[in-house]
């Protein structure tokens, strides 16, 4: 279903709920995996995913359609994830960097992480990246978004995104081959 029709149905109180179910069904997996890679833990990802969709539902009337629906939802997911991580770090009284380290450390015992040593090391490497490079790497490498899609979501030029991705890959490769 084209975005324009879905948006019209979402804004119409008579069709809103049905359209919203379709929206969730259509985008839940993509948004979940993006959030999961940011917050690492499944239960946290579930909370953030729910908050993201609740925000989408509550704010659909203020969506100005200056970007695609997908980009708008992605931005909400990114914002919710960042807010969640900041709040979690603050609650624990630690920095965001320390929080990232802890989250990756906990993966060893995580029943929803089926990773060997290499995958664990990959997560450690990703955790060392600056926020933006981390986002760009996950979006490009795992989620296979195009640079144009990423450019619209992150409001950054394609050239800058390519540079970020290149730096991220180099750093991860160096981290993985360091030992």
């Amino acid at each position: 279903m084209p975005d324009s029709i879905l948006i019209s149905r979402l804004k119409d109180s008579n069709t809103r709920e049905e359209a919203f179910r379709e929206l969730v069904s259509q985008y839940k997996e993509r948004l979940y995996w993006h959030i999961r890679r940011m917050v690492i833990d499944h239960d946290d990802a579930d909370d953030v995913l729910q908050n993201t969709f609740v925000k989408i539902y509550r704010n659909i009337n203020s969506f100005k359609q200056e970007s695609s629906l997908f980009s708008w939802m992605y931005r909400i997911a990114i914002n919710e994830s960042i807010t969640f991580l900041n709040a979690k770090a603050r609650r624990k009284g630690i920095s965001n960097t320390e929080l990232q380290e802890n989250l990756v450390k906990n993966l060893k015992a995580d029943v929803y992480f089926n990773g060997n040593e290499i995958l664990l090391k990959l997560q450690q490497a990703i955790a060392t990246l600056p926020d933006k490079q981390k986002l760009v790497f996950n979006m490009k490498y795992f989620e296979e978004l195009t640079y144009e899609e990423m450019s619209e979501i992150l409001e950054t030029s394609v050239g800058a995104l390519k540079a970020s991705y290149h730096h991220a890959v180099k750093k991860i490769e160096q981290f993985l081959t360091a030992d």
């Binding site: 969730v24 997996e29 499944h42 089926n114």
Partner: peptide, 17 residues
């Protein structure tokens, strides 16, 4: 670089969300 990230989800999670 590895091709996957190792993250998994509980069975039926996506059906229930």
């Amino acid at each position: 670089l590895p091709q996957k990230d190792g993250f998994e989800i509980p069975p039926d999670y996506m059906d229930q969300v």
